[in-house]
């Protein structure tokens, strides 16, 4: 890695094929018109539920709220125990212990946002300590943010080094398996699809296990064309290296319809291998509510109403 310089990174990243905005948005819109009905809708709803990182990232979060979220994660619909569990609970790092205890040995992961989330405006030692805290507290997954300021100014080396350093910390808890590293690109601040493609490749080069769109604190968050471009990146990365990297849209996905469009896009872009919680996640809070309502509708033929699904 010593030969790695800003110049070599720039040469490489800027050598990636361009993304045509009009074409990418047209392709995403076309994928969004797929008609997913009956058995395939039921499959998509259950798959989407199992891919959720159920999230609360508010300054006003309390241990009680996190415990409530954990209860919902383990039994999303108490009227129907066959409902799949979600993939993970996503919280700030001071709530990791609470979530860890509440989830017990349920198999649901705890993800922590670190590195001075959401802005990422802190020195590297602070970011590493933030991550270390979460790893020590037992986080299974780390959702870090990249330094968008550095990325936009062309200082790719700094972005790379920070991701690589956080990745090292993810491996530092000797009592637990290495924490999975999700790298948040904050695509709403990167603005162009060319930047999304370059940031995706930069994160993968630096060791990301997952690339994630957004913090949920910036609008626009996850959009279908952005996910399309990121899925093309992980598909081509696999073609080049043989290794798979996961993708996580976060923020702005609130309805079953949106979630299904994303699954269609995964299916027809990266391929069916990505259609598992191991390789695709939804960062969401209210999405689960709509998925449960639609699931009930499909099972019983009638909408129960939002009072029959617990809100956080």
């Amino acid at each position: 890695m010593s030969a790695l310089s800003n110049r070599s990174l720039r040469t490489w990243l800027h050598g990636l094929p361009a993304v045509d905005q009009v074409g990418a948005e047209a392709r995403a819109a076309a994928l969004g018109t797929r008609s997913i009905k009956t058995t395939s809708k039921a499959w998509a709803i259950d798959t989407a539920i199992s891919m959720i990182d159920l999230t609360t990232l508010e300054g006003s979060d309390t241990p009680g709220k996190v415990r409530n979220l954990c209860a919902k994660a383990m039994l999303p619909d108490r009227a129907d125990p066959s409902t799949p569990r979600v993939a993970a609970i996503c919280v700030y790092n001071d709530m990791v212990t609470v979530a860890r205890e509440a989830l017990g040995d349920s198999g649901i992961n705890v993800a922590a946002v670190t590195t001075a989330f959401p802005s990422g405006r802190a020195s590297l030692p602070v970011k590493l300590l933030d991550t270390q805290d979460a790893v020590t507290a037992g986080a299974d997954e780390i959702d870090m943010v990249i330094d968008r300021g550095a990325f936009l100014s062309g200082d790719y080396r700094t972005v790379f080094d920070q991701i690589a350093a956080v990745k090292e910390v993810c491996r530092s808890n000797p009592d637990r398996a290495d924490a999975h590293l999700k790298v948040i690109l904050e695509t709403g601040e990167l603005a162009t699809y060319d930047n999304v493609r370059r940031a995706s490749w930069l994160a993968m080069l630096a060791g990301a296990d997952f690339i994630k769109t957004s913090t949920g604190k910036i609008s626009p968050a996850a959009t279908l064309p952005v996910i399309l471009v990121m899925l093309e990146a992980v598909r081509d990365w696999r073609g080049l290296t043989g290794a798979m990297v996961g993708v996580k849209p976060a923020g702005g996905i609130r309805t079953t319809k949106d979630a299904v469009k994303h699954l269609v896009t995964v299916n027809e872009t990266a391929g069916p291998d990505w259609l598992t919680p191991q390789w695709f996640r939804f960062g969401a809070s209210s999405l689960l509510t709509d998925l449960l309502l639609q699931r009930q509708k499909l099972r019983t033929g009638a909408y129960s109403g939002s009072d029959y699904v617990t809100e956080d």
């Binding site: 797929r34 008609s35 997913i36 009905k37 009956t38 058995t39 395939s40 809708k41 039921a42 499959w43 998509a44 798959t47 699954l263 269609v264 299916n267 069916p272 259609l275």
Partner: peptide, 10 residues
Amino acid sequence: MPTGFEYAPA
């Protein structure tokens, strides 16, 4: 229930 994402007839 299908095992993968097979689009049902629409």
